[in-house]
Design a protein around this nucleic acid. Structure first.
Lengths: 266, 266
DNA sequence: CGCGACCTTGAGTAGGCTCAATGCCGGTGG
DNA sequence: CCACCGGCATTGAGCCTACTCAAGGTCGCG
């Protein structure tokens, strides 16, 4: 799944370079839209959103979608795959800010402000739905409801950051790990076809990613996960994991995490 | 300045309970608007924003503006004074998420989502400009530019959180302290009358606040600040501080912090 | 077969924590 | 007028969580 983990140059290709309007998946038949965590759109909204989409972008695991300090002419919605947002310190220490799941809207900061203050890297091969920055203007000018949705999404990602900050600032290593696994699992399961029973969480994160998310060292992260595995709370293998005892994990995290909110999908 | 630091019940009174439209400071003559960090509004925008404002709210230092888990019918803009946003863990550990300065728009999360996931407490006596939640809808329906501004503000607070998360996750105690003081000073000075030379920063934060912001213990925060004072980098007295050697502080923080962005004021 | 990415484990260290006590100051009530 | 109290800052001592350095193991791939 994950190929090259090292940071490499931006390596991404437009799927349909010759035809701005053609695309693989028309919004109306977007598979994500069937999921019940996404609020239903009116036909009119759907038609409008459809006009915003200018193509798809496929990016390989390990390559960068955005680089801190640059500005971007594009906005994306993740169609499939995972990515993560992060920042660096001058000496190379890295902090992962959050993870981008299918349905997540990315690049708003870069479109709304002048430049990105963070980078984004693909965790797996990923397919993005591309909007022009200019389209965001059109959206604000013609669709109050969708504008509100955009703001809603921004508020939601702020909430997620709040949670994360609480975790990193005030929880112990064990609590942090438990909390992160729980949150990742929850977000993963929101997107799973409703039929399957909760099982393996296939997100290609390495323990280094976990460490950089939680503000811990790799070694200590490993030991903490090892403890969770010895206690049969989770299983971790090959960059994916499985929750064996969710109740216990939630106790350790000291917080169940709340219900997922129905959200818009742009 | 700060009276009661203990957490007390919500204690706030509407200034003009009998007359929804009357108010102390009409937006057109809002003193904050003269500052050059706030983008100039068109007369029309100003007139509209003016119709949103339904009054002012004065809150005493130490009392809560919002309580986690509740929902709020109001949005506020800080007119004067300071507050901070924070979250608790069940056992009482507290993490301060960010500080609210004059001109900051607060309560968006609570208005846009169903309920607040954080609390806000006044750091000093504070005056807020009150908007009804419903006014936000009107804004989105009639003013695309202002809607965009709201989104812009949301993106900005996300940026600030990103910074903070990087700090708490990956910086040492000394770096964190230096960084926080720098950021607070910068934000403070943006709001100072342009004449005054950079001097004392009068924000009534205790070392406990600093500790809870940075994810450190009170004792260690004290020792770290003591080190900065011994080195004559900053001075700290009575819940206010002064930067004596900004260059050194920036080196210690490992990041200058960038230019403040011109922003909208609602 | 060798290499690179990832996970694991041991050993020693240190940065930051807890517990505890003290000092300072302003406000309040006897 | 003074004693007392509460909030805040400060300092010492000892401990422990999490870090660093260092090896070694596994697996997949060219």
């Amino acid at each position: 799944m994950q190929r090259a983990a090292s940071t490499e140059a931006i390596n991404a290709s437009m799927v349909n370079p010759k035809d701005g309007t053609a695309r693989q998946v028309p919004c109306e038949r977007c598979p994500l839209r069937k999921l019940k965590i996404f609020r239903p759109f009116t036909p009119e909204e759907l038609a409008f959103v459809s006009t915003l989409k200018t193509g798809e972008l496929r990016v390989e695991a390990g390559s960068m979608l955005f680089l801190e300090g640059t500005s971007s002419a594009h906005l994306y919605t993740v169609l499939s795959g995972w990515a993560f947002r992060y920042k660096f310190l001058p000496d190379g220490r890295r902090q992962i800010l959050n993870y981008c799941f299918p349905g997540d809207f990315i690049g708003l900061q870069g479109s709304v402000m002048n430049e990105m203050q963070h980078s984004i890297e693909a965790l797996s091969d990923i397919v993005l739905c591309v909007f022009q920055r200019e389209g965001l203007w059109r959206l604000f000018e013609t669709h109050a409801g969708l504008s509100f949705d955009v703001t809603w999404l921004a508020a939601r990602s702020e909430q997620i950051l709040d949670q994360q900050l609480l975790s990193v600032g005030r929880r112990s290593a064990l609590e942090r790990c438990a909390h992160l696994l729980l949150v990742l699992a929850q977000r993963f399961e929101e997107l799973a076809p409703p039929t399957r029973t909760p099982g393996k969480i296939r997100i290609p994160v390495t323990q280094q990613h976990v460490a950089d998310t939680l503000g811990l060292s790799l070694v200590h992260t490993n030991r903490t996960l090892a403890w969770l595995m010895r206690e049969r709370v989770v299983r971790w293998k090959e960059q994916e994991f499985e929750i064996l005892n969710r109740k216990r994990l939630a106790e350790l995290a000291g917080d169940e995490g709340g219900e997922p909110a129905v959200r818009p999908l742009l």
